[in-house]
Amino acid sequence: MNKREFLKLSTAFGVSMMAPNLMAKQSISLYGAPALPSVTMAIAALQGKSSKTHDITFKTWKNPDQLRAGVANGLINATMAPLNVGINLLNQGFDFKLLNILAFGVLCVMSKDESIKNIADLKGKKIILPFKNDMPDIIFRAIIKKLELNESEYELTYVQSPPEVLGLFLQKEYDAAIMLEPLASVCELRAKKIGLSVKRAFWIHDEYARAFNKPAIIPQAGIIIQSKFYEQNKEFFDTYESDLKAALNFISSNPQSAAEIGSNYLPTPSKALVNSFKISKLAVTRASELGDEIFDFINMIYEFNPKLIGGKIPPKSYLL
């Protein structure tokens, strides 16, 4: 082999070794909450067009404190989060923006008492709920305040996680529990199994509408993204937004298949997920298209307690 042939062969070999790297997908990590819209995110990550160009890792965090820690150490750049958490992060100096809203109504009150039909009926009752000063608690107490009810007449017990709410509600003498879907559907199944009479007393978004004279939707949670990360991956997120809409259609058309996928990401039996899909208000709506609804909700939180969103209403540029 002469020198020229050797150089040609060496060049060809070098290109072939580089080719896998040239064809490698870009990696991107997305995070969801331990709640129903994470199924939409997971299906979009698995089945969407964005998965053809990116190697997507999707995980769920366990509680808001874990989410905040992940943001603080730079591990989490794009995640579903309750609306108040995203604004708090912004006001703490983390440059996040809101991409969309993924849920309009997934929060309800489960009851052992047939007489409970609205929030006023819970006066004097023992109520268990998760996450003091986070979204379920904020909405519930803001409605009480707006309806000019006396919060001191509500016996509220807080625990550190939604599963704790479920376990203690079924085991102990609580009259009602505030639960997110799909946990409320799990509650129905477990109660039936042990012979306990439990019902979905009312949806929180209906009480929100009645109290504030607004449509019966709560822009409760959506995807927040670190601004620089969004700019670096804008094409991906535009595609992923379309994938989320396709995933929502898939859930509607194929609830059983969607539930089987979802049970890999949420500790929830597929039967409960199927029921949850039917009764919950899942959504995929760009944040900028919901400006009025989102800022009405933010103002509601601010008027209830400014500290719960870091003391400042975000600028309109917060919405992507």
Results as ranks from 00 to 15, higher is better:
230 Y>P: 01
283 A>E: 09
17 M>C: 11
299 N>P: 02
180 L>G: 04
252 S>G: 05
274 V>G: 09
250 F>E: 12
26 Q>H: 12
63 N>R: 10
234 K>C: 02
245 K>M: 13
195 G>D: 04
280 S>V: 05
31 Y>R: 03
71 V>K: 00
278 K>S: 14
178 I>M: 05
295 F>W: 06
219 P>L: 06
305 N>L: 10
197 S>V: 10
159 V>W: 00
123 K>W: 00
319 L>A: 05
29 S>Q: 07
174 Y>S: 04
13 F>T: 14
269 P>V: 07
205 H>N: 13
305 N>Y: 05
300 M>Q: 02
11 T>G: 06
245 K>S: 15
318 Y>P: 10
107 L>I: 06
209 A>W: 03
210 R>K: 14
157 T>G: 02
101 I>G: 08
229 F>P: 07
128 I>M: 09
19 A>C: 07
166 L>N: 09
271 K>V: 12
124 G>R: 10
140 F>I: 03
307 K>I: 11
134 D>Q: 09
239 T>L: 11
239 T>V: 11
305 N>H: 09
257 S>V: 06
79 T>K: 00
205 H>M: 06
309 I>L: 07
277 F>A: 03
178 I>P: 01
263 S>R: 13
301 I>W: 00
199 K>E: 11
150 N>T: 15
308 L>D: 07
130 P>R: 01
79 T>H: 03
193 K>V: 11
249 N>R: 12
294 I>R: 04
189 L>R: 09
96 F>P: 03
8 K>S: 05
304 F>N: 15
14 G>W: 06
131 F>Y: 14
315 P>W: 07
